[in-house]
Design a protein around this nucleic acid. Structure first.
Lengths: 248, 248
DNA sequence: CGGTTTGTTGACGATCGTCAATGCCAGTGG
DNA sequence: CCACTGGCATTGACGATCGTCAACAAACCG
């Protein structure tokens, strides 16, 4: 079942038929012709947890869409201190265009499915289809918004607000019943305690303590250290320190 | 001296002739024709320190290039805690495309010169000129890199490393002798102590104390609380906690 | 010159980091 | 099957860094 074989299915390659990147990701920009062109060069990859996708200061020779799983983006200082600067879920686009080498690390934190394209194919597509670049710009702007949101969390929230904010963000990305106004949520944490601490700029002991406190206060329940249940999302939100902004 | 009057100067509007945005900013993407089109709609504005350019949750009706001065981007929590999430220098582009309202505040922290365009004109230009959108994407990617760089600073550096990193960043953006490998630097801080603290996620007292310490250690000299001199940039860099990343 | 904003310095205390002990679980090999 | 190992999580004791509060100095502006 190759790609070419089925392009008459309304002109859309089979590989892409059920792909989320076509609905919400960068590929949504492409008309069937361009989609076929790009799909010819793509390859689906299964990555297991812990594998590095992009090494720091390593040449970037491919870009990918995340189809399932979670990828963490990290930066580290020379003495080993580390900071997670982004998490990518399906159908995010991974890779830094226009730079020969990346200044960040990308690593799978769960099992991950990728749809990878050679660098050249993506760059060709950017030149050929302004709509593609347009989508890329939109995603980049969203990532910028998210990064700035986390700057507030890192700089101005207490440890307990940080942990609550993290849980809220994960709940919104991981719970399949994604209603923005869902009253409850239930999900597996994609990160270890140590990784959560690298995300929030605190220690893993502090993460554990705050989780225990949230559990003691009845805001969350935890099973097997990884599975989290939130009965009342609004109670969790109250612990996040005031998300919006007002000026009195 | 209107705009139209001088377009035969190699086809470039007078207003744009000496504009940095044409060399390094988004306008560099435009051919003379498009430049003239955009220049017709633009207006130069002088803004004084402290004036708000974009209010939080306020409709965005114009975009601007910064021609001189410094603009701070902030986000705040409902209880008043505030975080600076970006600083923009010439020739940065200010404004968030594709969103009706902005989730951040923009405010002049020094006297600022802007070149402002109506929202519609910028959006027309984005449709018309893929090169323009391309530049915008590049700037956005750079801002994303910067934001992530600061996430490391906010999350993983000590107060003293934060202040040193801040001085280094300002030196690189404000000292006119911009040689990347300059041995020394001298500049006016564009921010008050309180603003620096909002940038670094610490208190203004801590900022003061770390500055006093850097001065006591001979790393910097300060005149009139605002003017900073760095004799040896490398000594300052050593205080930043290891900028690059290694994995052993 | 007052009055206001901004910066500096000190004393004290809370939050969070460090260090260490222990528990838990999965995998491995005898 | 069980002991052993190693990674991860939890908990406690202690201490350092940084925030809070307060007083005061300096700069700014009418």
């Amino acid at each position: 079942m190759t790609v070419r074989q089925d392009i008459h299915t309304s002109g859309i390659p089979v590989l892409c038929l059920s792909c989320e990147a076509r609905r919400r990701g960068v590929c949504g920009a492409l008309d069937p012709d361009n989609l076929v062109g790009l799909a010819k060069t793509c390859s689906r990859r299964q990555i297991e947890s812990g594998v590095e996708l992009i090494g720091d200061a390593q040449a970037v020779d491919s870009y990918s869409n995340v189809l399932s799983g979670v990828v963490k983006l990290t930066k580290s200082l020379s003495d080993g201190r580390q900071q997670i600067v982004g998490l990518q879920f399906a159908p995010d686009f991974v890779g830094r265009p226009f730079k020969v080498e990346s200044s960040i690390n990308a690593e799978a934190v769960t099992a991950v499915t990728l749809c990878s394209f050679p660098r050249a194919a993506v760059e060709r597509m950017m030149k050929k289809s302004p709509e593609f670049e347009h989508r890329l710009l939109k995603q980049t702007l969203n990532e910028l918004d998210e990064a700035r949101e986390w700057m507030v969390t890192l700089g101005r929230k207490t440890a307990s607000e940080k942990v609550a904010s993290f849980l809220l963000m994960i709940a919104r990305n991981m719970d399949s019943s994604v209603d923005p106004a869902a009253r409850s949520a239930s999900f597996d944490l994609p990160l270890t305690r140590a990784e959560i601490s690298d995300f929030l700029g605190i220690t893993n002991e502090t993460v554990t303590r705050q989780l225990t406190r949230l559990r003691a206060d009845g805001v969350i329940r935890i099973e097997n250290t990884r599975h989290v249940m939130v009965d009342s999302m609004s109670r969790l939100e109250q612990r996040c320190g005031g998300l919006g902004a007002r000026q009195p």
